[in-house]
Simulated assay, not measured.
Amino acid sequence: MPLAPRLLAHLDDIRLWQMPPARMKALPPPCTLHDPHTQWLLVPRDGRINVPEEGLESDTTPLLLGPTGSQVVALEGAAIALEVPSYRLAVSPLTGGQHRLLEHEQGHLVQALLEELTLRIERISPESQRYIAQAISDLLYCPAPALGETGECSLLAEADTLMRRRLAEHTLRAEDIAQAMGMSRAGLYRVLTPCGGFKTCLHALRLDRVAQLLRNPQQDRKAIKGLLFHNGFSSTEQFQRLFRQRFGVAARAFRKGALSPLLGDWRFEALPGNLS
């Protein structure tokens, strides 16, 4: 019987898994701009992580896998996996997830935190779990894609960056972003159409930003109304409708810890050549 990941714990909206030594195909759930998604962080404990198709390999540094398609992953030895919602990481729904090794300092701090965590996971209060989940999220920042690439990907990344910088502008229009990019409105729409268009992209970015703040314990004293207005929404009714559509729960329930039923689970299929 093939080995399978074993759920260790929930930390607020981050899940921890024990990963067996094996060759597996990681299958992320389908995701679109209209749905939140998750990313995986693989942390080697005693062995090596290898993603042949991406040319990534490490025995010390955690590896971030994005929901851009299936990947073959070889785990030589024990590993811990963190399943993290995209809004936690401020990963753009426009540019999708990235496959990359964490920087040295990021990796060192994540591993130290996990070592402490796995030793006393059953004794941590729900309130402390929220702060630990936030600490992990803060360590897993995802840099924006390089804008030096050619083609539509570069334009998409540039549009994403510009919209993020101007989320708070209630009257932000496609024309404003197009002008900042030195292109026509029609040209911008051509770039954004595969992602659902300008409004869909802008709403997704704003909703993920508010969700990130709602999960942050340091933002608990701030009213939801203030958070939504500071991130570009001008109508409470519109915000509540869009938030429920994207996350499956009301913003107030989300802040209290309700988990989105729309977040799909990754699946892992064991491949021939098991390493155990």
Results as ranks from 00 to 15, higher is better:
residue 108 H to G: 02
residue 209 R to H: 09
residue 40 W to P: 07
residue 38 T to E: 10
residue 199 K to D: 06
residue 128 S to R: 08
residue 265 D to R: 07
residue 94 L to W: 12
residue 242 L to M: 12
residue 246 R to D: 10
residue 222 K to F: 14
residue 249 V to W: 13
residue 43 V to L: 07
residue 92 S to Y: 14
residue 186 A to Y: 02
residue 24 M to H: 00
residue 94 L to P: 12
residue 223 A to H: 13
residue 252 R to T: 06
residue 218 Q to V: 15
residue 243 F to Q: 02
residue 74 A to G: 10
residue 262 L to V: 13
residue 110 V to F: 03
residue 59 D to M: 12
residue 242 L to T: 08
residue 222 K to M: 14
residue 57 E to H: 15
residue 260 S to Q: 11
residue 177 I to P: 05
residue 114 L to F: 07
residue 195 C to K: 09
residue 73 V to A: 05
residue 76 E to R: 15
residue 193 T to I: 01
residue 4 A to W: 01
residue 126 P to I: 08
residue 242 L to S: 07
residue 140 L to M: 09
residue 140 L to N: 04
residue 63 L to S: 06
residue 92 S to E: 13
residue 21 P to E: 02
residue 107 G to Q: 00
residue 224 I to Y: 03
residue 137 S to H: 02
residue 236 T to Q: 07
residue 161 T to C: 07
residue 21 P to R: 04
residue 255 R to S: 15
residue 72 V to G: 03
residue 179 Q to L: 08
residue 24 M to T: 01
residue 236 T to R: 07
residue 145 P to E: 02
residue 194 P to L: 07
residue 267 R to L: 08
residue 239 F to H: 05
residue 270 A to S: 03
residue 86 S to F: 12
residue 70 S to N: 13
residue 91 V to W: 05
residue 110 V to N: 01
residue 74 A to E: 12
residue 188 L to P: 01
residue 94 L to S: 13
residue 253 A to C: 10
residue 190 R to N: 14
residue 198 F to W: 11
residue 130 R to D: 11
residue 78 A to C: 14
residue 52 P to S: 12
residue 215 R to H: 15
residue 63 L to I: 09
residue 180 A to G: 12
residue 270 A to T: 00
residue 64 L to S: 05
residue 169 E to F: 10
residue 50 N to I: 11
residue 213 L to E: 15
residue 158 E to T: 11
residue 237 E to Y: 06
residue 183 M to T: 02
residue 108 H to L: 11
residue 3 L to P: 00
residue 94 L to C: 14
residue 53 E to A: 14
residue 82 L to P: 05
residue 17 W to N: 04
residue 132 I to M: 04
residue 124 I to R: 04
residue 188 L to F: 02
residue 150 T to W: 01
residue 53 E to C: 11
residue 199 K to C: 01
residue 102 L to C: 00
residue 250 A to E: 09
residue 142 C to H: 02
